[in-house]
Amino acid sequence: SLATLPPFFMRGSIIQLADGELKRVEDLKTEDFIQSAEISSELKIDSSTVERIDTGQTPNVVVIQFGVGELKAQVSVEVLMEYPFFVFGQGWSSCCPDRTTRLFELSCAKLCVGDVCVSLTLRSLG
């Protein structure tokens, strides 16, 4: 459902890294994703650059176009404007950080065109 964000973006949610370590969602660092992907047999990290942000057809929804991976494959996702993405070297960022902070108490930066987000893909696709 588009009505709400998944519960794990709520401040204080406990996240398990690939090595078993537990961290709160607000304490995650870029290295946590990179290191978890390194020991994953199936998943690898891609760099996905925000290329466009458009308002969606539904209130509070945005369409974000990413250039994914080295080939900058074009992928669009439709998400709530408060949906947080993890930007390399910066942390949680959303199109409406005020809403993200108000609804989930998760501190966010503003997601902008040019930001490079952490995304996942399958190792076998490489």
Binding site: F8, A18, L120, L122
Partner: peptide
């Protein structure tokens, strides 16, 4: 207390592969 896996938090953006 629920524990969520790290890979739930970042999007899976698989580029479309040519068949």
């Amino acid at each position: 207390v629920p524990v969520f896996p790290w890979h739930s938090l970042v999007p899976f953006l698989a580029p479309t592969q040519s068949d």
